[in-house]
Amino acid sequence: MPGNFAEIYASQLASLHHISYRIAYERVATLLGLGQPLYVQFLTYLHEVLFSFPPNFGPSFEFYPIPAWTIVFLALRWTLLLLGTAIVISLALGLFIGIFLATHKNKSIDRAAQPTFYFLNSIPQFWLGILFIIIFAIDLHILPATQAQSISANPPDILAHMVLPLAVIVLTTAPGYALIVRGAAVDTLGSDFLYATKAQGLRRRRLFLRILRNSLLPIVTNIALSMGYLIGGVITVELVFAYPGLGSLIQSAVVTEDYPIMLAIFYITTLIVLLSNLAADLIYPILDPRVSYVSS
């Protein structure tokens, strides 16, 4: 594994304090408890991560001695704001456009939309981000190119900073959702239960909701499974827009070999993926009564 904080910190101490590197390293080794047996160091680390709240990953190398978790938590707020908003909008757009296309199956708009959506879905987010910055920020000067807020950090200001990164994420993820929903809705529209429901004389609004609910199942699965991919994707978007979220943080952590920060981010990303999968499993029975976790 490249990088060694003790060596880096010792070299900084040595050059700043005009002391020999060896003396500086001994100080750092004492400071970090490196004299203990390796297994003791590892068990101490595990204990601190698993049995502390919040998890203690130790001090960040770059922001020493601020705990890595504190730094990650600060960045997480912005990522959740961006990613959460993006998922909600993408989901809403995907659902309505998907159902719309399903109801227009094989019509011109449906035929044109499908390849277009595949194309949009395959556009690299960083490329679209750069394009948007050049057009909307540098050329037209109508939206901020970077950062999450400016001097007046009020909600409209934060929203203005969010528009471009949000648009990039939504434009590249919503088409995928729309295609999934379209497929599910086409199946639903052709299913027997829908004819039976119509025959029962159910009100239109409730009928629409049933189609919606049945079309939701695959997309819930997709969101849960792709949560890791979404977080990975948002990293590149954050980098392009200098958005101060997990993406920017992990980039700087990799560059500076700040392992506590990296581990904390991987930990929380894993946690989010696991929890979203659990949430998807719990939502299934609500959306589809045929799914039940209670044994008959």
């Binding site: 750069i130 910055i133 920020a137 540098i138 000067h141 901020p144 190119a145 970077t146 950062q147 400016s150 001097i151 980098l239 392009v240 827009f241 200098a242 920017s248 980039q251 700087s252």
Partner: peptide, 20 residues
């Protein structure tokens, strides 16, 4: 004086070119 921090040269350039 308001100081903005940038993690990459590209985003820094974009911010300057867009008059931020």
């Amino acid at each position: 004086v308001y100081v903005y921090l940038y993690p990459s040269e590209e985003s820094y350039v974009a911010a300057y070119k867009s008059d931020q």
